[in-house]
């Protein structure tokens, strides 16, 4: 065991907890984007994170796979602490897939190449095996017929499903979604949400930043509300939507559910 992982707080000793964030704070220059946020996620749990723009939702989940670096607090993924140790980062990212608002597909590669790149480079898979795996997940997201196209030749909804499939090809245990439907036209939102619901039903551990409250209601085990870099409230959906405790949560829900 490395010294970093030697002193695991009691909560993470619970084998069920795959992500443990303790008192995370993060500054961008002088600006405090995350203020003492703690969050535990159990295996198979679906957490939806919501909150007004600029409240730190993206920052929070991007700290989990170290796209952003937190300055205070500790993050453990499956008991391994996220530090600037490259080995830890590598081991943790191996377990985590991420889907972005803007898809971030590789435009110079075909859909199939987008999917096989990771498995071939980081898991030393043979090309044929990687392609088989890729086709398996393309069928899962229902676009096997687009495998030879380039990302920009697909609709937004199709691109986002390719992005989901690309993450799944790494066979992660945890999936992070950062507003996966925010860049989509309304008629494409459903196809992406359906894919995510199926993923949830398969038992994937998911943290989803989204404004889709319908999705939160049906899929989430836990809804987290953030404002000004702090976690204001977290509760199961029935309680969160039916009986929010904090006035700020109520104000936010009023605003967002009016539409």
């Amino acid at each position: 065991m490395s010294p970093a992982t030697a002193n695991i707080p009691a909560a993470t000793a619970n084998a069920d907890i795959v992500i443990a964030m303790h008192n995370i704070s993060k500054w961008y220059g002088p600006f405090k984007a995350l203020d003492n946020v703690s969050l535990d996620v159990r295996k198979g749990e679906r957490v939806v994170v919501c909150g007004p723009s600029g409240s730190g939702k993206s920052t929070l989940i991007r700290c989990i796979n170290r796209l952003e670096v937190h300055q205070e607090g500790q993050i453990f993924v499956k008991g391994l602490e996220m530090t600037d140790n490259v080995k830890n980062i590598d081991a943790i990212r191996r377990n985590i897939g991420m889907v972005f608002q803007n898809f971030n597909l590789f435009p110079h590669l075909t859909v199939l190449e987008n999917l096989t790149l990771g498995p071939m480079l980081t898991r030393q898979m043979k090309k044929a095996d990687a392609e088989e795996l890729a086709m398996h997940f393309l069928r899962k997201v229902r676009i096997p017929d687009q495998a030879r196209k380039y990302p920009l030749q697909l609709s937004g909804g199709q691109q986002q499903r390719v992005a989901i499939a690309r993450s799944l090809c790494m066979e992660p245990e945890i999936m992070l979604f950062d507003e996966p439907t925010s860049a989509l036209d309304p008629e494409m939102i459903k196809e992406v949400l359906d894919t995510m619901i199926e993923l949830a039903q398969s038992g994937m551990t998911m943290i989803v930043v989204t404004h889709e409250m319908g999705f939160a209601r049906t899929v989430a085990d836990n809804v987290v509300f953030m404002a000004d870099g702090s976690k204001v409230e977290s509760a199961p959906p029935e309680e969160f939507f039916g009986n929010p405790r904090e006035p700020r949560t109520r104000a936010f829900l009023d605003q967002i559910l009016k539409h």
């Binding site: 796979n65 796209l67 990212r93 897939g97 972005f100 971030n104 597909l105 980081t122 993450s167 790494m170």
Partner: peptide
């Protein structure tokens, strides 16, 4: 986003 997507599928700097 291209760098972030690459990081999210665990590619290293040279990859």
């Amino acid at each position: 986003g291209q760098y972030e997507a690459a990081a999210s599928i665990n590619l290293g700097y040279w990859q």
